[in-house]
Simulated assay, not measured.
Amino acid sequence: MRLIRLLKRLWYPAEFLFGRIGLSRGTPPEGPPVIDPYLGYATPDELILRGRVLSALRRFAPEPEQSRWVNFLQMLALFLTDEVAHVVVKADGERTVTDSEGYFTLRLPRNGNETGWHGVTAQVSGQPASAATVEALVPPPGPGIAVISDIDDTVMETGAYSLVRNLWTSLTGNALTRHVFPDAVELLTRLAEGGGPVFYVSSSPWNLHHFLTRVLERHGAPRGPLFLRDFGLTSRRFLNRKRGDHKSLAIDAILAAHPDRRFVLVGDTGQHDPHVYLEAAQRHPGRIAGVILREPGRGPDRRDRRDMAALREMGLRVESGRDYREILGGADWI
């Protein structure tokens, strides 16, 4: 694709340029490394804490009326990170080492039967100033319905079905201007009634974790762990992993962590979620309770319709439409 090839050629020169003016790699950190905490989750035996160690955190307080150019610069800065690799991160007696891009995963044994959000203080070994609270969600025990939801064009309008439109929307908006679908918030809230956890799976990079959680929180969407994408940008590798591969791996991890629950999969037809969800239902017989799909842009193509039909042939209930309003009318759709 020509646009991808162009971006690949421009990314490293741009990153070098921003680094020379102090916005990216090559700028010596002025203080100790810091932890960028991600929302984690739990298995029956462990708390899974996730995050990234960086030389500095970039947090912006956007204004509703600020220009698209300012939005663009602020969004671009989120991607130009200076990661701290191969350092020890510890919490509650457990420790791990960050990978080459600064990511870490800490596995802590669960104590007791507490449920809800659990915060644990993590820090870079030998750097007490780096301490940060990393949270993990422990859902209530017992069987029940849980939700895995896409974000792009499912909960938040991005135009992900068009690369050009997606880049324009994503890079020229801010946390106050991004549009979240009210019907999606209502749908997820109803599905989460009774304590069922909600997990978000997106093709967006981990650099946007704080940004996305702010947008979702501002619009009242259920709070839940995010499973985002490691772009792994290098001079030899640029966006090589397919979106569907990332979503499939995330779905597998979530289902494995909650073996007693069945899941509702919420998505859209703009990025061929029906195919990803069909494969998930085939890999995990009996674990998928139903599928709900938004139809953005031109709606489902032939492949999407074929996959939706295959889901129905498996006995799953599949609901789809331009929005979720009709689906909200039937609480017993599962």
Rank of each mutant, 00 (worst) to 15 (best):
I251R: 06
Y277L: 13
L226V: 01
A289E: 11
F263P: 00
G321L: 11
F238Q: 01
A309S: 02
S248L: 14
E313G: 02
Y324T: 07
L228R: 00
T234N: 08
L311D: 01
L311H: 04
M314C: 00
R229Y: 09
G297K: 00
R303G: 15
H272A: 15
G321A: 12
N240A: 15
G290E: 06
G315Q: 00
R283F: 07
T269N: 05
V264N: 04
G297R: 03
R283M: 05
Y277K: 07
I288P: 08
A256N: 01
E313N: 00
F227R: 09
E295D: 15
L233H: 01
K247W: 06
D301M: 02
T234V: 06
A281I: 13
R236Y: 11
A257M: 10
E319W: 15
R303P: 08
G286W: 03
L226K: 12
S320F: 09
R283N: 10
E319R: 15
L316K: 08
D260W: 03
V276A: 10
L311A: 02
E279H: 13
D230A: 07
D252E: 15
D245F: 13
H272G: 10
P296H: 07
A281Q: 12
Q282I: 12
D273L: 06
R312S: 03
D230F: 10
V266S: 04
R312A: 06
L226A: 09
R229I: 00
M308P: 01
A310E: 09
L255S: 00
A250P: 04
P274I: 14
L311V: 04
P300I: 03
E279L: 13
A310F: 13
E319H: 15
G244I: 14
V266M: 04
V264F: 04
G297D: 12
Q271N: 13
H246V: 05
F227E: 00
A257G: 04
R303M: 12
T234S: 15
